[in-house]
């Protein structure tokens, strides 16, 4: 039984006016999603080799959410997210080599092998960090936004949280405080309908729509198709503009789908918590292929251009894995540094 079908309309809306965005920009969105997909597939393929001794939370199926939102931000804007880190990190511009090296537990990892896959960051591009505690990132991002406000910087801060994080008290506390102080902040909620193997219906009352919660705190809430990168980009852009103008925070719910298990390689639907047919039903709505079809149909990308992207990305991924594998292990002394700051 399909509990959570795709509810979007694909790229229907853009049929009449596909050239609203420049061709380069559209291709860059597509390329970013394709790159994340290819990275994830390679991580998944090589995960059973047991060289990446880190829990992985693949983002396959959710690429449009990461890419559409990150593209609306400046490099100086800050993003903090939960445990499903790979896509957000790459979309924000995080260094691929440092990410793969982190997976391989090497000293060249983005945090020197102290964090693993659930703790990626690249401060040079505003990827401020991630927390493996559900909703841990939410008040931290509110605090970053408060600091930006106090120091009169025009930084916008975005937290990426999942549907289950909206069940945590810290999220309610943060919504209240962000609305109270009109913080320059975006709550970007990726609703993929499952927390580990627990479907939304066992966790939240029937009929509750996540994006409507924020209105109880006096905060604007919007909902959008999370598999349509242009829709995601559009609502995030509006929220970013509002935040930067000083008009306060926005809560965005994007509905998307996790095509793999909560953690590890492969899909675990056969264990019984969701129907494998549900996963299959989402495949025609794959964010990467929907965008590809849209661009090709509207002469905004040729198949040759896509092939070239595939080749470049493939090379980059191989280089990143080679770099990670060739990198040194951290030393015993490394385990004892940076416990305190000077």
């Amino acid at each position: 039984m399909i509990q959570y079908p795709y509810q979007g309309k694909g790229y229907e809306f853009y049929r009449d006016n596909p050239t609203e965005y420049p061709r380069d920009f559209l291709q860059s969105l597509f390329r970013s999603m394709l790159r994340i997909r290819r990275v994830e597939l390679e991580v998944e393929r090589r995960y059973p080799e047991d060289q990446m001794k880190t829990p992985i939370h693949l983002v396959i199926g959710q690429e449009a959410a990461c890419v559409g939102s990150a593209a609306a931000l400046r490099p100086t804007d800050l993003v903090y997210c939960g445990h499903r880190t790979h896509g957000v990190y790459l979309a924000k511009g995080g260094d691929l080599k440092a990410m793969i090296a982190e997976f391989f537990c090497k000293s060249t990892g983005c945090v020197g092998s102290r964090g693993g896959s659930m703790h990626l960051l690249d401060k040079s591009v505003g990827m401020a960090g991630t927390s493996a505690i559900v909703a841990g990132a939410v008040p931290i991002t509110a605090g970053m936004a408060l600091a930006a406000q106090l120091l009169k910087k025009d930084t916008v801060c975005m937290v990426v949280l999942g549907d289950a994080a909206t069940e945590e008290g810290a999220t309610s506390e943060s919504l209240n405080f962000a609305a109270l102080k009109k913080l320059p902040m975006i709550f970007f909620c990726e609703n993929n309908f499952y927390s580990v193997q627990s479907p939304l219906k066992f966790r939240q009352p029937e009929g509750v729509e996540i994006h409507r919660r924020s209105s109880g705190f006096g905060m604007r809430g919007v909902c959008v198709d999370g598999n349509n990168v242009l829709d995601v980009h559009q609502v995030t852009k509006e929220a970013v503009d509002r935040a930067r103008r000083g008009d306060g925070p926005t809560f965005i719910e994007v509905r998307t789908y996790r095509c793999r298990a909560h953690g590890g390689a492969g899909d675990d639907s056969a264990t019984g918590y969701r129907d494998p047919k549900e996963v299959e039903a989402w495949i025609p709505h794959c964010p990467v292929e929907m965008m590809s079809n849209f661009l090709v149909k509207n002469n905004l990308m040729t198949l040759a251009e896509r092939s070239r992207m595939e080749e470049e990305i493939g090379r980059e991924i191989q280089e990143a894995f080679a770099f990670a594998q060739a990198s040194p292990e951290p030393s015993e002394e490394d385990a004892m540094t940076h416990i305190y700051q000077n």
Binding site: Y80, P139, I140, A142, G143, A147, G169, F177
Partner: peptide, 16 residues
Amino acid sequence: EDGMMGVCVGAAMNGT
């Protein structure tokens, strides 16, 4: 308390 402690952590991380 939990939320505000998180706010303080984030604010401290971002220059205050």
